[in-house]
Simulated scan of single mutants.
Amino acid sequence: MDSPMIELKSALASLFECGQYSDLTIVCGGKRYPVHRVLLATRSTFFEGACRNGFKEAETGVVDLSEDDAEAVEHMVHYFYHLDYLNKKSLSRRSSQRSNRSVSPRSSRFSRRSPPKKLNLAPVEDPLLALVAAANNSMPLTPPADEAAFQSLDASTKMPDTPMADQIEDDDLEIVQSEEELDVEGPHLVAHAKVYAIAEKYGIAGLKALARKKFADEIDLHLSSVEFPEACQEAYETTFHTDRGLRDVIIQTFRANPSLSLRPDVEMAVRETPGLAFELFRVASGLPVSS
């Protein structure tokens, strides 16, 4: 990521952290989020309408979302300023200063355990995300000019000058390992379903596409988790039957994993979710999911 893009994302994160120049407040339960109308109104059909003159929210400067899920509201607000949510690597003025820290080459063996996923931003209709995507064209790495001379060095020249150097390298290795373990620590399927629903409700196309991508990426990794049936229920109970975003992902997962129906917790979720039960019945009957 080049310096201008780091500067932009750092500035947005700083606005989120300190609330400077905010001219609107989102209230949800006991939390208040100072936000900026221009950032929300240009990326959400709901907030664009709420910020117009004549609406109560435009006059009071307060948007009360207490009826919505508090976790989903928090992720939505975080997305407006970080272009992501549930991401430990979101930039701020402090974290951006550490973004160029090198990682020990020996950490590569941990990357095979959980390969990074690249988000396809093409269908995301968010102007800031489109700007980030345009600026993030990666450049090929250039090998050292004198690579042959480097390979000819004997082992003694490659040893660290002091024991402390090796200890620092080991510390970096431990940090990378712990970060990888955190990345696969547990599922967030229910959270993604909630974010998808709130993005649809408030007309945030970029967030909706991002939530679907995260949901689809995680579902195969956490089929055996207790959160899987709950996420299926959440997705079907918070979206219209015509909205196939999460529903198609779930149906395809059941098609690819017939043994899911043998799990008692999954069976209970299907029994309690008529929409899911109906669509699985059509699949089992060889009929199209939607008539």
Rank of each mutant, 00 (worst) to 15 (best):
H82D: 01
D183T: 09
P288N: 14
S156M: 13
S224Q: 14
R212H: 08
S99E: 08
N257Q: 13
P4W: 03
A133W: 04
S224Y: 09
P105N: 03
P4N: 04
N136A: 10
K208E: 01
F80N: 07
G286T: 07
S108K: 10
R43C: 10
G203Q: 03
S92L: 03
F80K: 03
C18L: 06
A197N: 02
I219E: 05
N87L: 04
V226S: 11
K201G: 02
V73G: 05
N53Y: 08
D126F: 00
I219M: 06
V190Q: 01
S291A: 12
S178C: 10
L128K: 07
A205N: 07
V190Y: 02
D64E: 11
A148M: 11
L65D: 03
V289K: 09
T238M: 13
I6Q: 14
Y79R: 04
A149L: 14
V77P: 02
D2Y: 07
S22L: 02
V73S: 06
V190C: 06
L276M: 06
D126M: 05
H75K: 11
T142E: 10
Q252T: 05
D126R: 00
A50H: 01
Y21M: 15
A211N: 00
S290Q: 14
R212D: 00
Q252L: 01
S291D: 12
H36Y: 11
Y33F: 06
A155T: 11
E17K: 15
Y196V: 00
A231Y: 02
T238D: 10
H222G: 06
E181A: 09
Y81P: 02
A133R: 06
Q151K: 15
V38S: 12
S95E: 01
V283E: 15
S102V: 09
N120G: 12
D64P: 10
A13R: 14
D172M: 15
I168S: 10
N136V: 05
D126Y: 00
A145S: 14
L153M: 13
H192P: 00
L119G: 08
E59Y: 01
A216Y: 00
A165V: 08
D23Q: 06
A130L: 07
F110K: 14
L210N: 01
R247I: 06
E125L: 15
S178F: 08
H188W: 00
D170T: 07
S156A: 14
F215C: 13
S285A: 15
I251P: 03
V124F: 15
T239C: 11
S66H: 01
L153Q: 15
A149R: 13
V249S: 01
D64F: 13
R43A: 07
T162L: 12
D265R: 11
G186Q: 13
S225L: 00
T60A: 05
L129Q: 13
N100H: 06
F278K: 15
K208Q: 07
D172N: 15
L262F: 11
Y202R: 01
F150P: 02
V270L: 02
V38H: 13
V184Q: 14
T142W: 04
V289P: 06
C28K: 01
Q97F: 09
A130N: 07
L182W: 13
Y236T: 00
L39D: 05
R43Q: 05
N257R: 04
K31I: 07
S224T: 10
A122F: 04
V195W: 04
S138N: 10
K88N: 05
P34N: 05
R106E: 08
L15C: 03
V63C: 03
I6F: 09
K9R: 15
G203P: 10
I6D: 06
S107N: 09
E125C: 14
